[in-house]
Nucleic acid binder design. Structure first.
Length: 558
RNA sequence: AGGGGUAUCGCCAAGCGGUAAGGCAACGGGUUUUGAUCCCGUCAUGCGGAGGUUCGAAUCCUCCUACCCCUGCCA
């Protein structure tokens, strides 16, 4: 194989795979994405999904979707459904049917029996508390359970009894007989089967004993012919156990476990427990609240699968712990949306303008491109008239330095229309500006003004033709980069009170009348927005996905 | 002397003994009927620290330091 025929390795796992392929340890690559259905998928899972499915695509192999469902009490069909939807939405397809570890419960049980027969597992009657004491500590070895040396026959009978349903939860468990003095605590006779009189979402009441993660995972990998079992760093200490089980059981093949570091993102949290807490305590509207770092939240926020995949490419795969700046995620979605979303004008906080020299009742329609660089996105028509609306923040009575918007006595271009000049400011009793009287320059349609210059360009809508809409301005969920840093406080103390600002007076250009949930636009000069599922034809609702880069804000900040 | 890991720019990350890629951010400048996009430029004599090996070290060796994970019948 010549040098340019080899696929360029993009991370250490791909390097390992290429070596395995070259040295013919494997002739194909099989990976798997093994979520436990006990919560919704989040951006950290997206990294694992892109790695596992992306690796299969890259090497023309296969990736299975397998629900690691060995703990029925915490799992549910709702989570399974959401996970399937999210993986598909991200653009990946698994090999064959969706798989479940529970599909293998009988095989796993038989292998547990095999282990007992080999004298490598025993039924223990130690209580959870006693087991903890016998386990020793990080610096002291554990000691053997008094039940450790039972005969194979006795163990077989006892295990059968565990399975039969006669024994209460916690009364006993099946343990691998390895080494209570091992420096690696995972090797101190780990529990591999426990009694749970619980209804299982897949197997119903077929079983009352369930395998532990350690006993299920590697063997499931082997059953599926997984070659590279990729997981996160915290499982590294489990690898010797993974290998011990594979070696001591008559499994059909020998999968290998490799670990990478999980994704941490600043200004958010990515622990399932904490995300569930945010939902349960109603700090957010649900798992798919647009502020959540869940896949479903990002989707509702207006993120695209391509942007999330791009983000995962950007951050790479390594074994070092780090915290990725959320600005990288934002850069990824901006890149996609800038290239692909049609432009529109929407005035978020309207300020009335009357064009005193424009005939009342008169109306013009202008045809504007939907995208400044991509004609294939077509065009749209916007209505112009005597009464228009502009953004409140686009007017100052006295123009600051470098002001490129409207100010008293000054001229500004209305995007795609005419240049107007502010002649008079009307205020209410409180002294607030409520309306501007302006004149328009009829000679400036598609032409530069003569003899003077406009400050800049602002967006606008026709007051009479514009569509009333609600706009939800989303910002980062937490107001500090690391909400978990201060161990004396809870992450909830750092929730950003302005993570959601709802605007109810916004007005969008008339062409947006027929939008559907999920449609994405750039509202010029304001950011990228998508139509929320709450949107109705008579009451449009838009979510702000992300703002535009704002160099004016930087200038002001200086 | 518990075990297992990780340290390269503010953040992510290439590098695999031949003289520090790239992206994000930041900062200058140009184009622009979006203060957007786009374009150009700047941004590690330095790779956690100290020694050592070598003609040559981020890469090899030794010692040290910091941080992460592990004492669920969770995954």
């Amino acid at each position: 194989m010549s040098k340019n025929e080899t696929v360029k390795p993009t991370n250490f796992i791909h390097q390992i795979i290429e070596q395995d392929l070259q040295e013919q340890r494997h002739d194909r690559v099989v990976t798997r994405f093994p979520p436990e259905p006990n919560g919704y998928l989040h951006i950290g899972h997206a990294k694992s999904i892109c790695l596992n499915f992306g690796t299969a695509v890259k090497y023309a192999g296969e990736c299975n979707l397998r629900f690691d469902d060995t703990n029925p009490e915490k799992e549910s069909q709702e989570y399974i459904d959401s996970i399937i939807e999210d993986v598909r939405w991200l653009g990946f397809e698994w090999a064959g049917e969706v798989r479940y570890t529970s599909d293998y419960f009988q095989q796993l049980y038989d292998w547990a029996v095999h282990l007992i027969q080999q004298g490598l597992a025993y039924v223990d009657h130690l209580s959870a508390e006693e087991m903890r004491q016998y386990r020793g500590t990080l610096t002291e070895p554990g000691k053997n359970s008094p039940y450790r040396e039972r005969s194979v026959e006795e163990n077989l009978a006892l295990f059968e009894q565990m399975k039969s349903g006669d024994l209460p939860e916690g009364s006993c468990s099946l343990r691998a007989k390895i080494d209570m003095a091992a420096a690696n605590i995972n090797l101190r006779d780990p529990v591999i089967y426990r009694i749970r009189h619980a209804h299982h979402h897949q197997t119903g009441n077929d079983w009352c004993i369930y395998p532990s993660y350690d006993f299920a995972h590697g063997q499931s990998d082997a059953i599926e012919g997984v070659t590279h079992s990729i997981c996160t760093l915290e499982f590294e200490d489990h690898r010797p156990l993974y290998e011990w089980l594979i070696q001591n059981l008559p499994v059909p093949c020998v999968p290998k476990q490799y670990e990478f570091s999980r994704l941490e993102l600043n200004y958010t949290v990515t622990s399932k427990r904490k995300l569930k807490q945010l939902v349960d305590e109603q700090h957010v509207s649900g798992w798919n609240d647009p502020r959540m770092p869940t896949i479903s939240g990002l989707r509702r926020r207006g993120y695209t699968p391509a942007a999330i995949r791009q983000f995962c490419d950007m951050i790479g795969v390594t074994r070092s712990n780090g915290v990725v700046d959320v600005a990288m995620l934002e850069a990824a979605i901006r890149e996609d949306l800038d290239a692909n979303s049609p432009r529109a004008m929407c005035v978020l906080r309207p300020l009335k303008i009357t064009l005193t020299n424009y005939v009342e009742g008169e109306e013009e329609w202008f045809e504007l491109p939907a995208h400044p660089k991509d004609d294939s996105l077509g065009s749209r028509r916007v209505s112009f008239g005597r009464h228009i609306l502009i953004e409140q923040e686009d007017f100052e009575e006295v123009a600051p330095k470098k002001w490129k918007r409207l100010a008293t006595g000054e001229a500004v271009r209305l995007r795609g229309a005419y240049v107007i000049r502010c002649e008079e400011v009307i205020k209410n009793a409180e002294g607030e500006v409520v309306e501007l009287l302006c004149t328009y320059d009829p000679a400036t349609k598609g032409a530069n003004p003569e003899g003077y210059k406009a400050n800049g360009v602002i967006h606008w809508v026709n007051a009479e033709r514009s569509l009333p809409c609600e706009v939800r301005l989303y910002d980062r969920l937490f107001s500090v980069a690391d909400p978990e840093a201060d161990k004396t406080r809870t992450f909830l103390d750092y929730l950003n009170p302005e993570s959601l600002v709802t605007l109810t007076e916004a007005r969008a250009e008339p062409g947006l009348a027929a939008v559907a949930a999920g449609d994405k636009f750039q509202f010029e000069r304001m950011g990228y927005f998508c139509v929320d599922s709450d949107s109705r034809p008579e009451r449009l609702v838009f979510n702000r996905t992300v703002t535009l880069r704002d160099s004016w804000a930087k200038i002001q900040g200086q």
